[in-house]
Design a binder for these strands. Structure first.
Length: 613
DNA sequence: GATTTCACGTA
DNA sequence: CGTACGTGAAATCC
């Protein structure tokens, strides 16, 4: 698709409203060329779907029915985005949510999009999903041959816009100069880059059709795209945290905030001495060094292969130094990872903890977050508290993994068990074992349990739920054979994603077993991640009128910040969204029943720590 | 200076 | 039970 001479224009900031229904934008000039574009009325666009492509950090090219319509500078025109969302709520197309972030920072919340990067990670697996990767895979080019740009040196200055040429180089790859995006763009080049992105959207769409993975694949692309919008919003909004409460909790572990270096050193020594006093005077070890801790333990007669907490836990009574050592470890964790430095670095003056969010990193496509948002110790959760006049609605999915297994495998008997609030109860009855045994057996089957107490229960599981167990065995076998997997929602799980390092010292058999475990786990964990994101983005889309904001996603748990008087409504809506997500995953049967039931535990709280099971 | 290992928090 | 992630400090590599 080549575009005609683009109407490459910027607004003058004079978005005039002719009326609430027909906002219009007057366009006049561009960075480096003048194109007489005349007037532009958003109401003209209301009849069809806009495809819009945001470019780099700044400019955005709008297209309508394949024709370039408008090019603007993001920072210049928040009102244009706002009006566009209001009038037509387009499905934006962009290379990644870094563009969405720019718009969200202006206070506009795009409703929907096609995120090329998210779609790419879904379709092809892995982490890398820049324009050059997207282009290469869709053109069957070897990603190893993607060219890299020479580092910029004194003698190798950044290119002028005029030196860029076409986006595609002679080797068939996107030119790295274009991908890097730190070039000054002419309007024609911006439009050309938009052209490229739109072409990728069409190729991805065709790729989806050709995979024949069922209607859920396209639905997953849209859900994962929306999840990227959610991620950008999570980065902008942040998690409400009371820094004073956080500081007082930290003080309980490591003492008050030191005023100077000497005080910090004294506090450090005091904590070290709590442990070292159990040794003969004069003997000292660096407690921060695992090797030295091992030597320390050897000196008091304890020999261990490593000094991990769970191992030392069992040796509490072996020597009086073990107990204070464990306490030291705990305090050290708080001090180094979640101490005052963490508070200072990640909690803003507005009382929001902010980190970077990824919608689908990793092997199975779960969301990830930095700044400790996903591994904050439970002891710190009281500091995560709603602002004045607000409340949290927190909800987590109950027994999500076995329910997912029932759904993706299509096992009718296991699906029947999901009708119970506690699905392990009917499973236990079926297996004629205790509930705990049944639970361990089901989890063991999903995770590839190796140490076997539940061996007998596992055999019974295979007899009673052959479809579900067959699904897992199939994934295990495929992964052991080095074959890539694809989740129920359509995410490719490449077997290259498995971390070989951790098992490199084992023999071939245990490596194969590790691959098998990885495979069966990825199919469940990945599908659960997809289901969770569907739930979350439905809630995001449905809750605008409540002023509710999702402020934390934690694999199976949602935390929503909402005005107090809308909390009950929000909780009710959250449940309806869960039912909608379940329905989208598996339409109702002929008898009108939902084949697999999903449940959540939902509560309205003032702080995250409350009402947590 | 960059990379790996150990340890540990979360699900 | 087992998988995944992000983190920080020490140890190791180059």
């Amino acid at each position: 698709m080549r575009w005609p001479t683009p109407l490459a224009l910027t607004t003058t900031g004079s978005t005039s409203s002719a009326g609430a229904d027909t906002p219009s934008v007057r366009v006049s000039s561009c960075e480096d060329e003048r194109v007489d574009g005349g007037g532009f009325s958003l109401s003209d666009l209301a009849t069809g779907e806009i495809v819009s492509v945001a470019i780099g950090d700044h400019a955005v090219a709008f297209t309508f029915e394949g024709r370039p319509t408008l090019l603007i500078d993001i920072g210049d025109a928040p009102d244009v985005f706002h009006a566009t969302e209001q009038a037509v709520s387009p499905r934006w197309t962009w290379w990644s949510n870094r563009t969405a972030l720019k718009i969200i920072e202006l206070g506009v919340r795009p409703a929907k999009c096609w995120d090329l990067s998210a779609a790419h990670r879904l379709l092809f697996g892995g982490w890398r999903s820049g324009p050059e990767q997207i282009w290469a895979r869709l053109h069957n080019l070897d990603t190893a041959s993607i060219p890299h740009r020479m580092p910029v040196t004194l003698f190798n200055q950044a290119l002028d816009a005029g030196d860029l040429g076409e986006p595609v180089g002679p080797d068939g790859h996107l030119r790295p100069e274009w991908v890097d995006g730190d070039w000054s763009k002419s309007s024609a080049q911006v439009v050309s880059w938009a052209d490229t992105a739109l072409a990728m959207q069409q190729l991805q769409s065709r790729y989806i059709d050709d995979l024949h993975h069922g209607p859920q694949l396209r639905a997953t692309v849209l859900s994962e795209s929306a999840a990227e919008l959610l991620c950008a919003e999570l980065e902008v909004d942040g998690l409400p945290v009371d820094a004073a409460v956080a500081a007082s909790i930290i003080a309980g572990f490591v003492g008050p905030r030191p005023r100077d270096a000497a005080e910090a050193a004294a506090e450090l020594k005091r904590r070290d001495d709590d442990v070292l006093q159990h040794l003969p005077p004069g003997i000292t070890f660096d407690l921060r060094s695992p090797d030295q801790v091992k030597s320390l333990l050897r000196r008091v007669g304890i020999e261990v292969p490593d000094t991990r907490a769970w191992r030392l836990e069992a040796l509490r009574d072996a020597h009086p130094i073990v107990e204070p050592l464990l306490a030291w470890r705990r305090a050290e964790r708080v001090l180094t990872t979640f101490g005052y430095a963490w508070v200072d670095e990640h909690i803003g003056p507005d009382g929001r903890l902010r980190g970077l969010w990824s919608g689908s990193d990793g092997a199975a496509g779960r969301m990830t977050a930095s700044a400790g948002l996903h591994n904050m110790p439970a002891e710190l959760r009281p500091a995560v508290s709603a602002e004045s006049g607000y409340a949290f609605v927190r909800a987590d999915l109950g027994q999500i993994e076995p329910r997912i297994l029932a759904a993706v495998s299509g096992d009718p008997k296991l699906a029947a068990a999901t009708r119970a609030d506690d699905m392990y109860a009917p499973v236990a009855e079926q297996l004629r074992v205790e509930r705990e045994i049944a639970k361990v057996a089901v989890l063991g089957a999903m995770y590839g349990q190796t140490t076997g107490k539940g061996a007998e229960a596992l055999r019974r599981l295979e007899r009673e739920y052959p479809v579900a167990m067959g699904y897992l065995a199939n994934a295990d076998q495929a992964a052991q054979g080095g074959n890539d997997l694809r989740t129920y929602g359509g995410r490719l799980v490449p077997m290259t994603a498995i971390n070989i390092n951790g098992v490199s010292d084992r023999d071939a058999r245990s490596r194969a077993a590790a691959r098998g475990r990885f495979g069966r786990n990825a199919m469940i964990q990945g599908a659960a991640a997809e289901f969770f994101k569907t739930w979350a983005v439905l809630m995001r889309a449905r809750s605008n009128h409540l002023n509710a904001r999702i402020v934390l996603c934690l694999h199976d748990e949602l935390l929503i910040h909402v005005p107090e008087d809308r909390a009950a409504e929000t909780a009710a809506l959250l449940d309806r969204c869960l039912q909608e997500a379940a329905h989208r995953w598996a339409p109702v049967r002929s008898d009108g029943l939902q084949p697999v039931r999903f449940v959540s535990d939902t509560s309205v709280v003032g702080a995250w720590s409350e009402a947590k099971d």
